[in-house]
Simulated assay, not measured.
Amino acid sequence: MRLPTRTWGEGDRVALLVHGIMTDHRTWRRVGPALAARGLRVIAVDLRGHGTADRGPYGARLFADDLVETLPAAAEVAIGHSLGALALSLAVERLAPRRAVYSDPAWHLPGPGSGFGPEVLARGKSLSEAEIVALNPRWTSEDVANEVAALAAWDEQTAYGIASVYGADLLPERPVVPSLVQLADPSVMISAADAAELDRRGFEIRTVKGAGHTIHRDDFDGFMASLDGWI
């Protein structure tokens, strides 16, 4: 599936941005311009079922295939968040960016027995503005407004389409390209043991102190500082 995209900047040096579940390209509203200011042409997608992209069917490998169909190969850097990081990791060999950044990647989601599963995630569709603020107290009012709009556009069936991911160990065996794993503090996605294992496998690990899961919205400055040497 060809995905809709949003572009900031121009030129031959390209950065790719892939959002997580429940949101869309608007999550990168500060990151896109910041990377463009560094001389990059920045391309952000709306994954299928998100934003203005077409709907279903859904699955992690389908998300990855869409990235390959939509985005240029050999980018300077590719950055994925959460589900977007999972999709990027499944597409990275074909996209072949020079570097990859996986921001709090969904590589080891809790299983349904933990009280977290597709039904729980799908209920996020009905979150009110006040609930979004309560869950994300460090977000700006513009980020909150963007999330309200993104949730209205989101197809919650994506949560069921990735049901096989819950409880699965999807940590990559090795970094296909030089790769940074950027973690929240604490990360609900990557445990300390997983982080140590990823380090052993050759990934660089950096934690943004005090940041929640959506690091680039919780602590934009910390997010950008964590990318030092990678962008």
Rank of each mutant, 00 (worst) to 15 (best):
L109Y: 04
E204S: 13
G39D: 05
E10S: 15
D65L: 05
P72Y: 04
V77D: 01
Y160S: 12
G161W: 02
D218R: 02
D54M: 09
R26Y: 00
I231M: 15
A195V: 10
A184G: 14
P4F: 03
T23C: 09
R26L: 07
S179A: 15
W28Q: 00
F223H: 14
V176R: 11
E197Q: 12
R30A: 11
K209Q: 13
T70Q: 11
A74C: 07
W28T: 01
F203G: 03
R30E: 14
A149T: 04
L35F: 15
P178W: 00
P72I: 13
G113V: 11
G111H: 04
V68N: 06
E147D: 05
W154Y: 15
F116K: 01
L35G: 02
A91R: 01
A168T: 01
D219A: 09
G113T: 05
D46N: 00
A149L: 14
V148W: 04
S114H: 03
E204W: 02
V68K: 03
D219E: 09
S126R: 06
F220W: 03
S226V: 04
P137L: 08
H50T: 01
R30L: 13
D228L: 02
R206N: 08
A150W: 06
L95Q: 10
T23N: 10
E147L: 11
T214M: 06
G167Y: 04
A73G: 15
L88V: 12
D221V: 12
T207C: 07
A74G: 13
R138H: 12
V208R: 09
A73V: 13
R61M: 12
A153Q: 15
R98W: 01
L17M: 00
A168I: 01
R2C: 03
L3Y: 07
P57K: 09
V68I: 14
V165E: 15
R94P: 08
T23S: 15
A73E: 15
V188S: 15
S114K: 03
D65F: 06
A74S: 09
L95E: 10
P33V: 12
R26V: 10
S191L: 07
L135T: 03
I190D: 14
V92T: 09
E69G: 13
G202M: 06
L16S: 04
A85T: 06
F223M: 06
G229K: 01
V176K: 02
A87M: 13
L16Y: 04
G9A: 09
L109I: 12
G32A: 09
A106Y: 07
E129K: 15
A149E: 13
D185M: 08
S141K: 04
L171C: 11
L67Y: 12
R6D: 00
V45W: 00
L35M: 14
P105F: 14
S164I: 07
D143K: 00
H213N: 09
S187M: 14
L198V: 06
Q157L: 13
L71T: 06
L16H: 05
P72K: 10
V120D: 10
D169L: 05
R26D: 06
L3M: 07
L109D: 01
R30P: 00
A96Q: 11
I215D: 06
D221Q: 14
S164G: 10
A44T: 03
L47G: 07
K209E: 14
D24G: 03
R2A: 11
E10H: 11
L3H: 06
L180M: 02
L170N: 10
T5R: 00
L16F: 03
A106M: 10
S128C: 03
W28G: 03
